[in-house]
Design a protein around this nucleic acid. Structure first.
Lengths: 193, 193
DNA sequence: TATCTTTGACCGATCGTTCAGTCATAAATA
DNA sequence: TATTTATGACTGAACGATCGGTCAAAGATA
């Protein structure tokens, strides 16, 4: 095997971090954010001490796991980053959100349980406040173009609704027919408001 | 003071329990459910040991606090318990929910953060499963009377939406104009579906 | 005095974090 | 190339702190 550059080492290191974060995510989701570092390490196949080579502290691990989840959903909006939402992009966002929800339920279970935890909220609040305004602006523009008299309220309403549906679905998937609810949402929000 | 009957002692005891639960609620809400028993006791002005006269364990305290919050919101529905929702009762439920949300934000902050916590969910799942079907039945009947083609989905949708709005409001009250959103909800759900 | 209430020191368990030391491998040297 | 040196990934015992829960004893009450 040829010698590796620093760059390549860094890539390998990042890959390992991702693997640990994946394990941490699942454990946090199913056993709460109090899952011991030792358990995460064991599940990831490394020693407890090594965890501290990859993450400064448990809080830092929590923060990174929480943020990676946030970014995934935020990136769904305005996929080509032109600041404008077409009808197609809006429906795509809704569909894609629901697809992610179904595909990786454990993941989002953690996401909701973490995001509401006072301690985790503090850890990620700064980054959240950076992401929110841009997202809202795109939505407000969209709802305004649909004839909404109060696009800010409609955007707030829409986001809250999506949160509530996601939260309920991941915690009680048996009670949910996600497809029907998806169609209901699209019906309400893509017609002229 | 006149001698007290067993009944009266029981009433006093319940009152003290309520007071402790109120303190526990606020601490759980603001510092997470890992707040130590000792801290709750100190805040309530009693010793740690005495906590175990009122509550069998910390889990039991958690369970009771979580359930008392649930019951409060569940009782808002169908106030006269006749199994039928009028338009007035439906609007009353929405308004009252929002009033409670504004009046006792800390309380609901805890509620949402607790209800999503895996451990707490286990503790209260049995009772939740008892309450849910009755609540749903009343709502389904209501939405059906409003001409909904799929009242089950609409009820699910409605409840999830309310959860999402409540969750977002208690965590970010500054970003929310609750009145506007309330009117939007009433507008959507009381017209013929 | 007899009974009930309340206290807080104490215990065992668990957790996050540290760190001295090991070892495989990369880099330097001869 | 062969040998030595340097690196840093990795381990796990150990530490200090914290927690839920217990209990003997003090205090209050009747």
């Amino acid at each position: 095997m040829s010698p590796r550059t620093k760059q390549q080492f860094e890539t390998i290191r990042e890959g390992r971090k991702d693997q640990i974060m994946q394990v941490a995510l699942e454990l946090f989701a199913n056993e709460g954010i109090n899952t011991p570092i030792s358990k995460i390490a064991k599940e990831a196949g490394i020693s407890k001490g090594l965890m501290y080579n990859y993450f400064e502290s448990k809080d830092e691990l929590l923060r990174e796991v929480a943020l990676s989840g946030m970014k995934e959903i935020f990136d769904l909006f305005d996929p080509n980053h032109d600041g404008v939402l077409t009808d197609e992009e809006f429906v795509y966002f809704i569909s894609e959100t629901f697809r992610l929800l179904e595909k990786n339920r454990e993941y989002w279970k953690l996401y909701f349980s973490m995001v509401l935890h006072p301690k985790v909220m503090e850890l990620i609040q700064a980054e959240m406040m950076e992401m929110l305004p841009g997202l809202m602006a795109v939505q407000v523009k969209y709802f305004a173009s649909k004839g909404s008299k109060d696009p800010e309220t409609d955007a707030m309403f829409f986001n809250s609704m999506m949160d509530g549906i996601g939260m309920n679905y991941v915690n009680n998937p048996d009670l949910f027919n996600l497809d029907k609810i998806k169609n209901r949402i699209i019906e309400i929000f893509t017609k002229n408001l």
